[in-house]
């Protein structure tokens, strides 16, 4: 019985993780359109776009295998990241020390995006990759520190244990705030979509991609964004709702996670719509400041605050 429930929740998680992300993007497009007094595309538009891209062959400007493999590896990384997260009280793939793995696979999406840009002879791809690299190099240490605070706070490196074992301290509240910023940057929303800036570097690492491979990359990015948001939502909800003993409660929790994820996306879209893109040096500066703030939070956490 228990394994069946577990299987059911895993399946629900997999379905959510595979199908929801493009709809989330659809929501964002609709919200942005409303803010710009436009009608906006249907919610499934991103799915239509992806379907179209999947159906088209890719033009390959290079013979390097990485060019072809990078989108698939990125997609695999993004999917693994999403599978490490709890859906209700079930984590589909659970090997322990999940936090480290989660950090690593999320990073892989960016890394392969960056490497893909470097496989082609295109100044814009290289510029975009260089920017992606600078963003990663400055935001990942910050995220690592914040994860450290979480791990220290809960005394575990396992994602689900962390989420159920957190206790409220001032440092945790600050961690939440800074984590929201860090995950937003990592997701590459405006004003942090610097690597793929269309007007400046024509899509950056993606500029040589087309057809199916481009579609796979987009899909990977949507799933990565979803995973980061789901992670944050889970951190926000799971610690404070008590132990989840029954499947009914787990289902309720899953519903709550789902609703909150969908509800957060319009906020992100509104932020995107009301901002101009920053420059890479602005972001590096901001991330560095945030990193030092993170160090202070870590120190606070060690002091037990």
């Amino acid at each position: 019985m228990e394994t069946a429930v577990k299987l059911g929740f895993s399946l629900a998680g997999i379905i959510i993780m595979l199908f929801l992300p493009p709809y989330l993007d659809g929501i964002a497009r609709r919200v942005k359109a409303r803010l710009q007094y436009r009608r906006g595309p249907p919610l499934s538009q991103t799915w239509y776009d992806l379907r179209k891209l999947f159906g088209m062959p890719s033009v390959k400007p290079t013979k390097k295998a990485l060019f072809t493999w990078a989108p698939y590896i990125a997609l695999a990384s993004a999917i693994s990241a999403a599978l490490l997260l709890p859906y209700g009280n079930v984590v589909p793939v659970d090997f322990g020390y999940n936090l480290v793995v989660f950090f690593y696979v999320v990073l892989m999406v960016s890394v392969f995006l960056m490497l893909a840009g470097l496989t082609v002879q295109n100044a814009f791809s290289h510029l975009g990759s260089a920017r992606e690299m600078q963003v990663i190099l400055t935001v990942e240490p910050l995220i690592a520190i914040l994860y450290g605070v979480l791990a220290y706070n809960s005394g575990s490196l396992d994602l689900y244990t962390i989420m159920t074992g957190l206790h409220l301290t001032p440092s945790l509240v600050l961690t939440y705030i800074l984590l929201a910023y860090a995950l937003y940057v990592e997701s590459g929303f405006v004003p942090f979509d610097i690597a793929e800036a269309e007007q400046e570097v024509i899509g950056g690492p993606l500029s040589e991609y087309s057809g199916r491979l481009l579609g796979v990359f987009y899909y990977a990015i949507y799933i990565k964004r979803f995973a980061l948001l789901w992670f944050f939502i889970s951190l926000l909800t799971l610690p404070w709702i008590g132990p989840i003993g029954t499947p009914e409660k787990a289902a309720l929790v899953l519903a709550l996670q789902f609703v909150l994820t969908v509800a957060f996306y319009p906020i992100i879209a509104a932020l995107e719509a009301t901002n101009a893109r920053l420059r890479i040096d602005h972001v590096v500066k901001m991330n560095t400041r945030a990193f030092f703030a993170g160090l202070i939070i870590l120190a606070m956490a060690f002091m037990g605050w």
Binding site: Q36, Y37, A197, Q199, N275
Partner: peptide, 16 residues
Amino acid sequence: AAHMVGYDTGFMHAWR
């Protein structure tokens, strides 16, 4: 000008 820095809301409203 707004569009060039990725501020598309400004772009849409100016043209509206």
